[in-house]
């Protein structure tokens, strides 16, 4: 938990510094007749975030020294199920870039239901084919929102 807290604070600090750099590029100081300079507002935001994350880091450090007992960031054995959800989901998005959302989602549904859910093949096939198909009709056909189809786009021109 403490480690995660520190890492998180460091990431936020990095964001804060990035914002500060951008503020410097736009011009920070001064209060002209049109109000503050363009960089002023984001300078304040960047400064606030950076200082805040440093304070959090300090708190973590103090707790570390005191060795206050804390809960672990991830419950023992909790990481695996999260990865089981997250990795296929990320794979689905990656695949969407190539084969489109519908097919990628069908595969994702099938994989998850079969290996994690241990459902019967028949249920797996039904859900993973019907759900994308129904979504296709709702979004692409009825509401005219073309969802990404990747390389298959040219085959699906109807």
């Amino acid at each position: 938990m403490r480690k995660a807290d520190a890492i998180c604070a460091l990431i936020i600090l990095a964001i804060g510094i990035l914002v500060l750099c951008e503020a410097a590029r736009l011009g920070i100081f001064g209060w002209s007749t049109s109000g503050p300079e363009p960089g002023m507002y984001i300078f304040l935001l960047g400064m606030g975030v950076s200082v805040g994350s440093l304070v959090v880091l300090g708190q973590v450090f103090v707790e570390w020294r005191k060795a206050v007992p804390v809960k672990p960031f991830i419950r023992p054995g909790g990481l695996r199920p999260v990865l089981y959800v997250a990795v296929p989901a990320a794979m689905m998005v990656l695949l969407t870039e190539f084969i489109g959302l519908y097919i990628a989602a069908g595969l994702y549904l099938a994989v998850y239901m079969r290996w994690i859910g241990k459902h019967k093949w028949i249920t797996v096939a039904a859900v993973s084919i019907l759900l994308p198909l129904v979504s296709y009709f709702i979004f692409d056909r009825i509401f005219l929102i073309p969802l990404p189809k990747g390389r298959f786009e040219d085959l699906l021109t109807f």
């Binding site: 241990k118 929102i145 073309p146």
Partner: peptide, 24 residues
């Protein structure tokens, strides 16, 4: 069942996120 509901939720979330601005 959760193992059907969960991936379906992720799928619907993905559609929703895309449809807002049509951006991958």
């Amino acid at each position: 069942p959760f193992s059907i509901l969960m991936p379906s939720i992720v799928f619907v979330c993905a559609i929703g996120a895309y449809a807002v601005n049509n951006r991958m």
